Amino acid sequence: MLINYAGIAVILAWGIVFPVILLVVQRLLCPSNPTKAKLLTYECGLDTQGDTWIRFKISYFMYALIFVVFDVETIFLYPWAMLFQNLGLFAIVEMVIFIAILILGFAYAWKEGALEWM
């Protein structure tokens, strides 16, 4: 029974070992010359002045987060559209339910004001 999982073990081992090998080779081949200027925190090319703990509106981040959520969910529509003619009634009903859930989520986000810029 363990032979069935051998492929997964090989892929998992390769996924762990390969990045480690690349990091070791990079460390050996690349020159290391850390200067004071290279170790400074880079933030938009400007030195911070005054109090850096300021508040900013989260609405932009909420708008982007909602876009990503709906974008990822609509990616699932593409495989379904490719096999549309081969699917039975059950798959079509599932897609109608999926789209209804998307519309409900969109309506909820709209009602809560997450889609307003200001």
Rank of each mutant, 00 (worst) to 15 (best):
V24Y: 11
I21H: 08
F90I: 14
V72P: 01
M118E: 15
I99C: 12
D51W: 06
M118Q: 10
I101R: 08
F61T: 05
G45C: 07
V25G: 00
N4Y: 09
I92S: 14
F18G: 00
W14Q: 09
Q49H: 07
S59F: 02
G7N: 13
I75K: 14
D71S: 15
E73A: 13
A64D: 09
A81F: 14
A109H: 11
D47E: 10
E116H: 01
T48C: 04
A100T: 10
F67Y: 14
I3F: 03
L12G: 04
V20S: 08
M82Y: 14
P31F: 00
Y60I: 13
V69D: 10
P79H: 09
L12N: 00
I101V: 14
V17Q: 14
L40D: 13
L77E: 09
I3K: 14
Q85E: 14
T48M: 07
P31M: 06
Y108N: 00
F70V: 05
L23C: 08
F61L: 03
V68M: 13
M82T: 07
K57F: 05
D47C: 00
T52M: 01
Y60P: 09
N33G: 03
L22Q: 03
L22P: 00
Q49I: 01
F56R: 05
V69W: 15
I58R: 04
I3H: 07
G7L: 08
F67T: 13
I66L: 11
L65N: 04
E112H: 15
I58P: 06
F98I: 05
L12S: 09
L77T: 04
A37Q: 07
G15M: 02
V69I: 14
M62C: 07
K38D: 15
Y60C: 00
K111V: 00
A91F: 05
L40F: 08
A9E: 12
I11K: 11
D47V: 02
V17G: 06
L104H: 10
N33I: 01
L39A: 07
R55S: 04
I58C: 10
A114M: 12
Y42W: 14
I75R: 03
L40Y: 05
